[in-house]
Amino acid sequence: MAALSDQLLVVAILCYLLAMICHAVEYAFGTRSVIGRAAARPERARVLVGAGVGAAGGTGPADEPGPVADTALPDTALSGSDASVPAGGSGPYRAVLAGRTAVALTGLAALVHLAVLVTRGIAAERMPWGNMYEYLLSVTFVGVVGWLVLLYRRPTLRHLGLFVALAMVLLLAVAGLLLYVPIVPLVPALDSYWFVVHVATIAVSSGILLLGAVPAVMYLIRHGHDQGKRSFPYSLGARVPAADTLERLTFRLHAFAFPIFTFAVMAGAVWAEAAWGRYWGWDPKEIWAFISWVVYAGYLHARATPSVKRPVATWIAVLGFLTMQMNLYGVNIFFEGLHSYGGLD
């Protein structure tokens, strides 16, 4: 069962990778991309398609040669609008197909991801949250489920999936390559029902907060783009949803996750009282949870204050995300503390 879990992890990473490629296809050739819009507006096709060839060459995978061949034509064709008609006919359709395939693959990957956790849990005869490897797998699983729920409710966000899939591939690769530890039972300190309550809620809230950082960053990019910035990260802004949609989404994800995170910290405090004799002792993990909590509280306050501009508030959310990352990796790696269950030496 343990070996099965490890093999399933590889399958899950591959599924996410394929989903990422399909998202990239849609990103490059879909209606929101330069090429897609060029196809939709034939009178400007010549200029834009010419510019799009480079991008298509960069991101377009080999298994989608059709649109690339189409768009290579206009430079030599006498009339750009004529050449782009076939692209308008097949490109967006194939792109949408690629996008849907990507979502299906993400769903499949999430199922395999779940199977990784379940088999790991069965093999260990406990909840699979005993070390950093298992914890990261759980948090990313919450993240991907959150993403799929979001996608179900707002299908127009689909092209953000490229970033989600990229994040999943990277995080799972980190988990599998750097954090992997063989299965062992829990140390006595973790042998408590609070383990389930605390770690489950922390994982769920971290997953959603992790997910919340995606629209936050997208919003900042889009906002910068709307302000006329065209340098690198802002140049992506043309392809993301409207700024206020992203901003509202950021807030809703954070507002949803913050009480769960608060409860998780409280559950941890109750557990700490039983395990270590005090509910709060400024252990490095506790310190960084405190910092994250304060920063996210700051975000919610800033968001609710009309005099604070929305980009400023969103930057605070991104800062909160960074503190969460610090807590997840930094504290386990750099500091010595009571929460040293990472399995890293």
Binding site: V294, G298, T305
Partner: peptide, 26 residues
């Protein structure tokens, strides 16, 4: 609100040294 936000961030910032330096009470 502005002051409260600044104080919140100072609080977060001030908590950091406690995780970097060893603490007597711990």
């Amino acid at each position: 609100m502005r002051t409260a936000l600044i104080l919140l961030f100072l609080l977060a910032l001030a908590a950091i040294p406690g995780s970097v330096l060893p603490q007597r009470n711990i």
